[in-house]
Design a binder for these strands. Structure first.
Length: 486
RNA sequence: GCCCCCAUCGUCUAGUGGCCCAGGACAUCACCCUUUCAAGGUGAAGAUCGCCGGUUCGAAUCCGGCUGGGGGUACCA
C-alpha cells in the first residue's frame, strides 16, 4: 500500500500527570498534519498495566484541549481505524505475535525474571552487551520445564537475525545508526504486547505515514524495522525529536522540574498561545528568525529541516517573557476572563477592572495577579511608621501630608484617577513637598507597600471610604510612634 | 561496562565553505523616561563557534580522533 496521505499520531501512556513532552510532540505533529492536509491521531498506549493511573487518560485529553491541540481521531472521538486504545486491541497483537512465531521470526520463552537478571549480570561482568541468551530457543514447553529458571507463563521473543537493518533515514537527523537489538519480548506473559509490537501493528493498521517520537527511541528503531520487514509492511518515515532537558541537561522529568507537568502551566497562568509559541521555539526556528508567532504561522512555515537535533533546556524565564507579551496583547475583557480563575477574593474582579491596564503590564503569569492586588484586602495591617518615614518627608511633614491627603480624598469628586492626580499635584506643589516623597508617603499609607500600580488608579480601585480609613490609621500610627519616641 | 545520539554567548537559537575576528531573543548590567514597581527606549557586557589534527586558496560550516553532555541497555513506555 502506498498512500501518500499524511497521518501522524501522538501515543501517550496514561501513567500519571500529562507530560510536557506530549504537548511538544502534539504541537509539531498537528502543525505538520495541517500543513499537509493530513490527519492527527491520538492513540492511548495503555499496555503497561502495572503503571496505569486512573483518570490519567482524561487528564491527557483535558490538558491537550486546554492547549488547543485537538486531534482528528482518538479514543474519545472515534475514527475509521479504531479502537484507539491499545488495551482494546489485544487480539490483534496476539494474532500477529502468533503469526511471527509460525514464520520462525519469534519464539516462546519461559525464563523467569530471576534467571534473566542473572544472565544480564554475568554479561555485564564480562563487559558484554546484555542480550538474552536464547536458552529457550528451539525447545518445547515440556523440554524447557525440566530445566532451571522455568516460569509457568511464557512470553514471545523476536529472533533477531545476524544482520538486521541498523541504519535508517531520519527526517531530523538524516542517516542514523542504531544499536544491534536484543531478542526483545514482544508479547508479555499477561498477554499484552510490549511497545515494540503494539506501535508497529497500530502505526501500520492506522496508516501512520510519519512516526515521530523522542530521541530516546532511536535505539529501538531496528527492532521495529524488523517487524515491518517480517510482516511485509512498508515502514513509515521516522523523525526523532530532541529531548527537552532539565537545567542540569538531563531529560526533563517531573521529579526535577515542575514544568515537566503539563498541568503546571495552566496552574501558573500561562496562556495556551504563549506555551505553544514557546514550545515551537524549542529545537525549532522560523526561517526569518521571528520568535513571536502563532500556530498558523507555524503551520505555514513548518519544515523538518528547521529542527536542530540538540536537546534544549526548558528555560522558564523566557517563557515568562513570552507569556507577558501575550498577556499585554490581550483585550481587556479577555484578560479578565483569563484572570478569573486566579482571583482569591469576592469582588476582586470588580476592583481589578479598574486596574486592567497596569496589571497587564505587570503580570508575567496570571497566578501573580492576586499578589499584586493583595493590598485591597490588607485591612487592619496599616502602614508601618518607619516605612512611612523612609519616603522622603520628615515626621512632621509626613503626618501633615497624610492629613492633607485625607482631606483631598474626602473632597475630590468624582473619585477618579485624573481629578485625584490634579488635586494632589496642586496641593503638593503649594505645600512645597517633593512630588515623589508626597506620593510615596500616601502610597505606603494606603497600601502598606512601596510597589503598587500607579497611585491614583490604586486609590480609585480601593475606593474613597477605604482610602480615607487607611490614611487616617496611618496618620494615627505616625502620631503614636512620635509620642512614644518623646 | 556496552551501544547510539549530540556539541555556536548563562539559556533559546541564526548560520549548511568566503557576506561571520559569528547575528537575533531571554536573562544580566548601565543610562533615559518616571509617583513606586513595571512597561517602554538607548546602550554595554557576554561565544578563542568543546579540544586536537586533517581537507581546502579559504571552515562555525566537510572528514577523523579525543573530551564533554545526553539517551538506551526491562515481560516501562
Amino acid at each position: 500500500m502506498t498512500s501518500h496521505a499524511v497521518r501522524v499520531r501522538i501515543a501517550p501512556s496514561p501513567t500519571g500527570d500529562p507530560h510536557v513532552g506530549t504537548a511538544y510532540m502534539a504541537l509539531f505533529n498537528l502543525a505538520f498534519a495541517r500543513q499537509q492536509g493530513g490527519q492527527f491521531i491520538l492513540r492511548v498506549e495503555d499496555t503497561d498495566r502495572a503503571r496505569l493511573v486512573e483518570g490519567s487518560e482524561q487528564e491527557i485529553y483535558r490538558s491537550l484541549r486546554w492547549l488547543e491541540l485537538e486531534w482528528d481521531e482518538g479514543p474519545d472521538r472515534g475514527g475509521p481505524f479504531g479502537p484507539y486504545r491499545q488495551s482494546e486491541r489485544l487480539p490483534l497483537y496476539q494474532t500477529y505475535a502468533r503469526q511471527l512465531v509460525e514464520l520462525g521470526h519469534a519464539y516462546e520463552c519461559w525464563c523467569t525474571p530471576e534467571r534473566l537478571e542473572q544472565v544480564r549480570a554475568e554479561q555485564r561482568r564480562q563487559s558484554q552487551p546484555p542480550r538474552y541468551d536464547r536458552f529457550c530457543l528451539g525447545k518445547t514447553r515440556a523440554q524447557r520445564a525440566t530445566e532451571p529458571g522455568f516460569g509457568e507463563r511464557s512470553v514471545v521473543r523476536m529472533l533477531i537475525p545476524d544482520s538486521p537493518p541498523l541504519v535508517f533515514d531520519d527526517l531530523i537527523r538524516g542517516e542514523t545508526h542504531a544499536p544491534f537489538p536484543d531478542d526483545q519480548v514482544i508479547l508479555k506473559s499477561d498477554g499484552f504486547p510490549t511497545y515494540h509490537l503494539a506501535v508497529v501493528v497500530d502505526d501500520h493498521e492506522m496508516r501512520i505515514s510519519h512516526v515521530t517520537r523522542g530521541e530516546e527511541w532511536i535505539s529501538s528503531t531496528p527492532k521495529q524495522l524488523l517487524l515491518y520487514l517480517w510482516l511485509g509492511w512498508e515502514p513509515p518515515k521516522f523523525a526523532h525529536f530532541p529531548l527537552l532537558r532539565n537545567p542540569d541537561r538531563s531529560k526533563i522529568s517531573k521529579r526535577k522540574n515542575p514544568a515537566a507537568r503539563l498541568l503546571w502551566f495552566r496552574e501558573q497562568g500561562y496562556l495556551p498561545a504563549a506555551l505553544r509559541n514557546f514550545l515551537a521555539l524549542m529545537g525549532w526556528s522560523m526561517p526569518d528568525g521571528r520568535e513571536i508567532f502563532s500556530f498558523d504561522d507555524l503551520v505555514e512555515h513548518f519544515a523538518w529541516e528547521r529542527f536542530s537535533p540538540v536537546g534544549p533546556i526548558f528555560d522558564v524565564e523566557k517563557l515568562d517573557w513570552l507569556n507577558h507579551q501575550y498577556i499585554q496583547a490581550l483585550p481587556d475583557e479577555e484578560f479578565l476572563r483569563q484572570a478569573r480563575p486566579f482571583l482569591l477574593h469576592d469582588g476582586e474582579e470588580e476592583a481589578i477592572r479598574r486596574l486592567i491596564a497596569p496589571l497587564k503590564e505587570r503580570t508575567k503569569r496570571l497566578a501573580d495577579i492576586s499578589e499584586q492586588v493583595d493590598f485591597l484586602y490588607a485591612e487592619g495591617s496599616s502602614a508601618d511608621p518607619s516605612l512611612l518615614l523612609k519616603q522622603g518627608l520628615e515626621a512632621g511633614a509626613a503626618g501633615e501630608a497624610l492629613r492633607t491627603a485625607t482631606e483631598l480624598v474626602r473632597t475630590v469628586d468624582p473619585f477618579e484617577p485624573e481629578p485625584l492626580e490634579a488635586a494632589f499635584n496642586a496641593e503638593g506643589e503649594r505645600r512645597g513637598w517633593k512630588r515623589r516623597s508626597f506620593l510615596m508617603t500616601v502610597r505606603v499609607a494606603a497600601t502598606g507597600k512601596t510597589a503598587t500600580p500607579p497611585l491614583f488608579d490604586t486609590l480609585a480601585a480601593l475606593g474613597r471610604e477605604r482610602t480615607i480609613a487607611r490614611l487616617q490609621a496611618a496618620a494615627a500610627h505616625l502620631d503614636a510612634a512620635a509620642r512614644a519616641a518623646r
